[in-house]
Structures are given as C-alpha cells and as structure tokens.
C-alpha cells in the first residue's frame, strides 16, 4: 500500500516534469517558454516522502501564482533534505520567475555543486540536472541583458544533454 502510493506520487511528479519541456528551448530575446512558474520537478530517487509531499504543495502554489508560498514549502523541504540538488534548482527557477535573475544564478550554482557531490552515482540524472541548471543560468543572463553569457551557458546546457 505504502509503496504504491509513493510510486504514484513519483510518477505524477515525473509526468509533470516531462510535460513541461518548455524550458528546454534556448533563450531568445523574450524569455521563451517560462509561462508556468512551476518549472520542472525531477525528484531524485532518494527523495523522501515528506519532501515529495512538500514539492507537490509547492507546485500547487506556484501554478496558482503564489511564488512566495511555493518558496516557503520549498524551504521546508530543504530543511529536511538540504543536500537535494533538485530542491535548489527548483528554488532557482522560482527566483527566475520572481524576476531575481542574479539570485537564480547563485542558487543554480549551488544546485550544480551539490549534484556533483555524490560522485559518479546516477550519472545521467546528474547530467540532466546540471543541464537544467545551465538553462536557468542562461535564462537569467538573458534577463539581465547579457546575451553573450546566456549563449555560453546555453551551450554548456546543450553539451550536457544528449
């Protein structure tokens, strides 16, 4: 019983992640594809049930447009799993929507630093998370009007995703 429920939550969240492929697009002049504030959520395999529940709530809040409530849920999740890079990436995305590109970059960097921390385990999910981080950084630079840096970051993202 426990396992099936958990499994379904994961499937739901992953399905949600896949459905939002908009941010795969390279940044153009007008921030493309960032219509929904929820961004991708790809909880790693070790993500606990409490954090999944909070992520679900964060997603609900952000689709309703209440970014700061979403961030509050995310902060709770981070206090439970502080080294989960997905949560930091999600936080970075929320900041991007909140028009705080500089902060988004810092958070994405933190997510990247943490994603590498575990070493060689689950290489492909690590790469895709890092690619996401670079995308956030690319968008953030674009928003700040630095298209050169944006392009460089996007190139890094592309090199990480096959």
């Amino acid at each position: 019983m426990k396992i099936t429920k958990l499994f379904f939550i994961r499937i739901l969240l992953i399905a949600f992640a896949v459905s939002l492929s908009a941010c795969q697009a390279p940044p153009k002049d007008k921030a493309p594809g960032w219509t929904s504030a929820s961004g991708e959520v790809r909880p790693g395999p070790k993500t606990g049930k409490a954090v999944l529940a909070l992520l679900g709530k964060a997603r609900q809040a952000s689709t309703k447009g209440s970014l700061s409530t979403a961030e509050s849920y995310l902060e709770r999740a981070l206090r439970i799993e502080p080294q989960n890079p997905t949560l930091w990436l999600y936080m970075a995305k929320l900041r991007l929507y909140a028009a705080k590109p500089k902060e988004a970059i810092n958070l994405a960097k933190k997510a990247m630093a943490l994603s590498s921390r575990g070493g060689k385990a689950s290489r492909s999910s690590q790469r895709s998370l890092q690619a996401d981080c670079w995308r956030v950084i690319a968008h953030a630079h674009q928003k700040m009007g630095d298209s050169l840096k944006a392009q460089k970051a996007q190139a890094k993202a592309n090199s990480l995703s096959y």
Binding site: S68, S72, E75, L78, E103, N106, L107, K110, A113
Partner: peptide
C-alpha cells in the same frame, strides 16, 4: 528570521534563502 506576519496573520515579509558563491 524566516518570516514576519502581521497580528492578523497576513504575511508581511519573507526572508528568502540568500546565497552567493
């Protein structure tokens, strides 16, 4: 400080996580 709310329970100020490398 994490948050500040008014006496009536309305969120007033959020102190977001701030990091810088």
């Amino acid at each position: 400080i994490r948050k500040v709310m008014t006496a009536k329970g309305e969120p007033l100020k959020h102190y977001p996580v701030k990091i810088k490398q």
